[in-house]
Amino acid sequence: MGMYAAFLAVAGLIVLAFLGVQAAGLHFLFGALIPYVAFLVFVGGFAYRVYLWGTSPVPFRIPTTAGQMQSFDWIKPNRFDNPSNGFGVVVRMILEVLCFRSLFRNTKSEIHEGRLVHGSEKMLWLFAILFHYAFLVVFIRHFRLFLENVPGLILIIESLDGFFQFGVPFVYLTDIMLVAGVLFLLARRIVLPQIRYISMMADYFPLFLILGIALTGILMRYFIRVDITAAKAFVIGLVSLKPVSAPEIGVIFYIHLFLISSLLVYFPFSKLMHMGGVFMSPTRNLANNSRMVRHINPWNPEVHVHTYAEYEEEFRDKMKQVGIPVEKE
């Protein structure tokens, strides 16, 4: 159910952009106003979401302990899977963010010959990392259209990406990887009954949306080409805050742009916030030092205590009178 709804929603966005640009001629609305608003919603929403997370107290140390904790000197601790200091946490976070280490430990359980067996499952990790890095390279590559003088580094990335020099213009390897990654992540939710059972519209929608963005981009580069010089001039107009209406660029460009705007607006309100959330997850970014450092819950109410010293101070005379021993004479 959610799958069809998500698909229809993305199809609807495409039709909306097509009609808005082709039939109604709203080039400025779809080309400039909506992207500006989307960008502001994205950055503002992202920052606000992170701020909300930042204001949530984390009173206890709750790291997932995936290895031997720091203990006696003669027991070897696992420094990175159960870090007890800041350095270990930094390494753990780097491994998590750059290598998806926790996903690498993904397992699956199956009934084999009547018995439940557990085994390692690396495909999800493989396609997830393929997808994320391909997306990152595609994102970085796009800066050739956002910066007036293209930096040499971006040209190098671009030529490496088109290394095999097939197709016109050269087919980018990351285009293929990105689509392969999304299709795997999508197929997983459609084909596997267990995963399908727990998948909702919010799981399918971003996948269809990213697939739409990738496919419109691929169409625009290899099949329904647009005047790329005019497109870059238009984008430079956007980032230099001098937006213009550019009806000479093909409608596919506006569909691509509108889908990206939709993604940006959707981002802060969705599971995609794992981009910021991975840095904020207390099960990863806290050192397991509960037994070395006393952590005081920051929202504990102030408790008025009456220590024994104060008690004795108050009742010393009476205690002496009835012969109760006191610490201080």
């Binding site: 800066f143 956002f146 910066l147 007036e148 001039a233 430079i236 107009g237 980032v239 230099s240 805050l241 001098k242």
Partner: peptide, 9 residues
């Protein structure tokens, strides 16, 4: 992109 883009175009 906006910072680098200022005054360009």
């Amino acid at each position: 992109p906006f910072i680098f883009g200022l005054g360009k175009g």
